[in-house]
């Protein structure tokens, strides 16, 4: 029996479908959700949501959010999310570079801009990492080793 998975970010629906397992990066650890899971509500960490169905696997980076789990549905409400296949590497690298440069200048660490930039750095690191790890064409589904 499959479990339904819906991944939505604030500006669009990224994934909708019946799957075998969903792996989500909860704040207190990564968890794999199988069908008939007990109802659960968790906040999300920065990380990768994996959706597996048969031999297929799809990966999405998420930057925080909430996930609601019902026995036959997983709803991931991500603050920001992207399909790993859709990540624009050059843009992510540029963003990473920009953020790094900014951080090196040593701005006051409690300003909004500092926080925004460090979040941006975090996000682009996550994206690039996810691309490196998960984007190899769809055939070879790498085993998940997310911390």
């Amino acid at each position: 029996m499959p479990i339904r998975c819906e991944i939505v970010s604030q500006d669009k629906t990224l994934y909708e479908g019946d799957v075998d397992i969903v792996v989500i990066p909860g704040t207190s650890g990564v968890m794999g959700i199988l069908p008939n899971h007990a109802p659960l509500l968790t906040t999300l960490n920065f990380g990768v949501v994996q959706v597996r169905k048969g031999g297929d696997e799809e990966n999405f980076t998420v930057a925080g959010g909430v996930a609601e789990i019902q026995p036959n549905i997983v709803t991931v409400l991500a603050d920001r999310a992207e399909n790993v296949e859709d990540i624009d590497i050059s843009r992510a690298e540029a963003a990473q570079q920009r953020a790094k440069e900014y951080m090196e200048k040593g701005p006051p660490p409690d300003s909004d801009r500092y926080l925004a930039m460090s979040a941006a750095l975090h996000r682009s690191n996550l994206r690039l990492d996810a691309v490196r790890r998960y984007r190899k064409g769809k055939k070879q589904a790498t085993r998940q080793t997310e911390e």
Binding site: G26, T27, S28, A38, P39, L40, L41, T42, T43, Q70, P71, N72, I73
Partner: peptide, 12 residues
Amino acid sequence: QQKIAAAYIYEP
């Protein structure tokens, strides 16, 4: 979807 009556598990 069946009607849920069970309480959630929360994390954290």
